[in-house]
Design a protein around this nucleic acid. Structure first.
Length: 635
RNA sequence: GCCGCUAUAGCUCAGUAGGUAGAGCGCAUCCUUGGUAAGGAUGAGGUCACCGGUUCAAAUCCGGUUAGCGGCUCCA
């Protein structure tokens, strides 16, 4: 007999060699049906595994991350089987589970198309119907190499060759299909009830653009048809919040063929943008920043000195002025540094915090452009902090706190990453080590959770990045804090210390919005276009019921306008229903309906875009309330 | 940049055996003066992304270019 310790603390005894699936069935009929995989003493294994010793056992269903991963991964094997059956000669690369589904990369003489995905899906359905068991078997390195070489599976051979010498090499087969795989898997294909192949994409083998481009098929799967449908519906819903769609519908911005990646801001978008900048200036003033502005185009020698000429050239735009080379700035730091250098500084002045809403241009690859999220020119809410080495931690913590305060106004949740030295970097390992551990110390000192993103730092220093999510859960880097010991060196920056000697300051480069453009993109998706009143391009619209009420409506507009509220008048000869519908679609926070009753009493009937009809309010009450809402930046 | 897909009116889209373009919404005018998500009529509006080819004839077939979309790579 073996003792089994379960998650709920209970202990059960089973005959040695009882499979995990049988144990699950014994615990409850439902668990027997829903369990997909189990862990034995913390290690994830197939349910078909017999238990040979006392152990801590946990079962995972689709409700757990582990269960979902295994479920989707098993679906990817079924995809591979279907593809190889329909399109012989297709070689397999890799097929992992991802956040909301799975993908499989193929190298095939066949070019997959959306129509073919339908066929592949049908083939997958029949594999599922056949309820083929997933069978695991271990192979020696020689056996596995032999097997996959014979099968012509060159990518698998490459994977095996890259496994560490002591690695256990396992395969899984279902029916006549076998794939190299560490597992685990669900017991049989019949578990994979509802699936959908969602899209096609190219993907480089091993993510390296020097390698061959493979064909990637993305899909998702669920234990129930209804869950799949709900998921697909949620995605459709999310797409309605897409900032590119809302940006056009709400007339905020546009991107035209004449300027790919160079967004145009329309009047309404500018209001949003100016409000953001106003807020930014207020917060930065409070936090002890000064604001500067530096030129867009600067001489080549500056970029050579900063290292951009060597390390960032492929992202830069160039021009000539009077036969001399100039570059359009891709970053604001060299300009900021010149401002610092324009006068002598005492240690008493430090830290100096210099902010700049700086327009930078970067050449992004055409395929990387994405609405306002990735563009070729954008305004960074940049700042450079020049400080004493002893001030590093406090300054970093100060920036983290400022970032948190600003994000929390919008109700954003964010993820923090620490990016370390990239391959293409300036400076010695020691300097990088020092800078990286300073960032780490600051994060730890305030108990901030973070993930390490190895090799993703800027070429001049490591960074802390703040990532925000878009409507489809894709994350975008917004805020960043970069610690830099190198630029002060390159530019021979100094301050005069207590001892009267010259010393080297340390620099922080940081942004909070990241780019105003990207941040607006995130804002649009976060609020689905229904901005809080303080940001809304139009805060209220007055709607007279008939043209008899036009005069009173104009008075109302004037009063609101005088109170600094962004208001307009819908004086068209249309019914109230019609006007309301349009104002709702434009997501205007407040609609003020005025007719005989209102004109007589000096009121307006207030309708809120999400709370609905709020009844009649005296005008000055409404003005007081909305002004308060705006002032408090209520969401 | 790479792989796949797409491009018709301001917007959403029809136009599927190649025979010089349609709908709904929006817009304009008129009628209607209507109290919380679409009142009615009439009308204007398109060198079918661009360049080239095949054909008696191209929105439609072929090639190229540009842009967009989904990914890969890259990054705020």
């Amino acid at each position: 007999m073996v003792k089994v310790n379960l998650k709920d603390g209970s202990v059960r005894e089973y005959a040695k060699g009882t499979t995990l699936l049988d144990i699950a069935r014994d615990i409850s009929g439902r668990l027997g049906k829903e369990a997909l995989v189990a862990s034995v003493d913390g290690k994830l294994v197939d349910l078909g595994v017999p238990l040979e010793h006392d152990a801590r056992v946990e079962f995972f269903t689709f409700d757990s991350e582990e269960g979902r991963q295994v479920f989707r991964h098993s679906t990817s094997h079924v995809l591979a089987q279907a593809v190889q059956k329909l399109y012989p000669g297709t070689r397999l690369a890799i097929g992992p589970a991802i956040a909301d589904g799975f993908y499989y990369d193929f190298d095939s003489p066949e070019t997959f198309t959306p129509e073919k995905l339908v066929k592949i899906e049908a083939e997958m359905e029949s594999i599922i119907k056949a309820d083929l068991p997933f069978k695991r078997f271990d192979l020696s390195r020689a056996e596995s190499l032999d097997r996959f070489e014979k099968a012509g599976e060159s990518y698998k051979v490459e994977l095996i060759n890259d496994l560490p010498p002591d690695a256990n090499i396992s395969c899984y087969s279902q029916g006549d299909f076998t794939d190299l795989c560490a597992g685990p898997h669900v017991p049989s294909t019949g578990r994979l009830k509802a699936l959908k192949l969602t899209h096609l994409a190219g993907a480089y083998w091993r993510g390296n653009e020097k390698n061959k481009m493979l064909q990637r098929i993305y899909g998702t799967s669920f234990p129930k048809k209804s869950q799949l449908e709900e998921h697909l519906f949620r995605i459709e819903e999310a797409k309605r919040r897409d900032h590119r769609k809302l940006g056009a519908e709400l007339d905020l911005f546009s991107i035209q063929e004449e300027g790919p990646g160079f967004p145009f801001f329309h009047p309404k978008g500018m209001i949003l943008r100016n409000e953001l900048e106003k807020f930014w200036r207020e917060e930065h003033k409070k936090a002890g920043y000064h604001e500067i502005r530096t030129p867009i185009i600067l001489n080549r020698t500056l970029w050579e000195r900063s290292g951009h000429w060597d390390h960032y050239k492929e992202n830069m735009y160039f021009t000539k002025i009077d036969e001399l080379d100039y570059a359009v700035k891709p970053m604001n730091c060299p300009g900021g540094i010149l401002v610092y250098k324009s006068s002598l500084h005492s240690y008493r002045e430090l830290p100096i915090r210099m902010g700049e809403l700086g327009l930078v241009h970067r050449h992004e690859m055409s395929g990387a452009l994405h609405g306002l999220m990735r563009v070729r020119n954008f305004t960074q809410d940049d700042a450079h902090i020049f400080m004493l080495p002893s001030q590093i931690r406090d300054e970093i913590v100060g920036v983290i706190n400022l970032t948190d305060r600003i994000y929390s106004i919008f109700g954003f949740k964010y993820k923090v990453e620490l990016s370390t030295k990239p391959e293409k970097a300036m400076g010695s390992d020691e300097v990088w080590e020092m800078a990286t551990s300073a960032l780490e110390d600051a994060l730890k000192s305030i108990g901030m959770e973070y993930k390490v993103n190895a090799g993703d730092g800027a070429f001049y220093g490591p960074k802390i990045d703040f990532h925000l999510e878009d409507c489809l859960g894709r994350t975008w880097q917004c805020g960043t804090i970069q610690l830099d010991f190198l630029m002060p060196e390159c530019f021979d920056l100094n301050y005069v210390g207590e001892d009267g000697q010259k010393h080297r300051p340390v620099m922080i480069h940081r942004t909070i919005f990241g780019s105003i453009e990207r941040f607006i993109g995130i804002l649009i998706e976060h609020f689905g276009g229904a901005f809080p009143a303080w940001l809304a391009p139009l805060q209220a619209r007055v709607m007279p019921i008939t043209d008899r009420h036009l005069d009173y409506a104009r008075d109302v507009v004037k009063k609101l306008d005088d109170a600094g509220i962004r208001v307009d008048l819908d004086d068209r000869n249309e019914k109230v229903n019609y006007k309301i519908r349009e104002a709702q679609n434009q997501k205007i926070p407040y609609m003020l309906v005025v007719g005989d009753r209102e004109a007589e009493n000096g009121t307006a009937s207030v309708r809120h875009r999400s709370k609905g009809d709020l009844g009649a309010k005296p005008l000055d009450h409404f003005i007081r309330d909305i002004s308060e809402e705006i002032k408090n930046k209520q969401c």
